[in-house]
Nucleic acid binder design. Structure first.
Lengths: 146, 146
DNA sequence: TCGATCGTAACAGTTCTTGTTACAACAGAT
DNA sequence: ATCTGTTGTAACAAGAACTGTTACGATCGA
């Protein structure tokens, strides 16, 4: 599959909007944002649509329209972004039910469900510990030393 | 996409082989294993082929052929299985390079790389803490109470 | 030599992602 | 009221991954 870069796209968008907002440009068009990502504005609008559904950004239509953050970037964790994108689980159980007559087939699904839940929890802990503001700060710091 | 159930398949296979081995059947055919998963033997052989490349199982061809574990199930972690399958990273960076003239586009990639590495590390810690023997034991325990 | 099984290629069907074009809906500006 | 820029969304193509199937050569014990 084309690897999943939706989280990268969304975090990039929010970091860029946060920087622009700090510089006084509170409202940005999808075309302006797309320029930073070097991609198509529709890609950006799709991503922004999901972020809006989660309440992280708001949009306005018509002339002079655009997108703006609804919260400060220090209150948006990468986990919030991840959840806004509605990611599917990392690991799936059997696509079709295993043989329930077999002792393993009979009992393994709840066990793996628990394992996968623990993994998911660990991922959420990691993502929840970083905010968009953190990412932006590190990004700008890296720029200085580079 | 069809969600990724390869880890589920592989762990199921190994747990089933471990139980059979404990019962005295050290060598199993892909067809026998496939019966427990209620799937096609080729699916099982594909998975077993990856596990063999990682040294977790061995195969013999010809008459009376089949597959057997090369280690005790208590020495195979779910992480070993995961690594044997050569999983691709959970999150990817931008599919095409962002605009490097933009401060965010310029510096964000190493930052996200670090974030994703931390997530991957957390996943590995979780998976590394459980063995195939653990999964089998819990599976059989669940069967008794069910 | 026979027969069972591995090992692997080829193909179909499904789903997801990225990227593109197109166009209606909207709302401020003139 | 009309113009204009932007959102919002649909439709489509190309590419990739996974599951599942059929097919068949390679291997090796009996």
């Amino acid at each position: 599959m084309a690897a999943n870069s939706r989280l990268t796209i969304a975090v990039h968008i929010l970091a860029w909007m946060a920087l622009a907002s700090r510089r006084g440009r509170e409202v940005m068009t999808s075309e302006e944002i797309a320029a930073s990502l070097a991609t198509n504005p529709v890609i950006v609008r799709r991503s922004l649509g999901e972020l809006r559904a989660a309440g992280l950004v708001a949009s306005r239509r018509g002339a002079g329209a655009g997108w703006r953050l609804t919260r400060g970037p220090e209150s948006i964790t990468v986990l919030d972004v991840h959840d806004a994108l509605g990611a599917e689980p990392l690991f799936a159980l059997h696509p079709s039910a295993p043989n329930l007559e077999c002792p393993v087939g009979h009992g393994i699904r709840p066990v793996l469900t628990e394992v996968y839940a623990a993994v998911d929890e660990a991922v959420r802990r990691e993502l929840g510990g970083r905010t968009v503001a953190d990412v932006l700060a590190q990004t700008l710091a890296a720029k200085e030393t580079a």
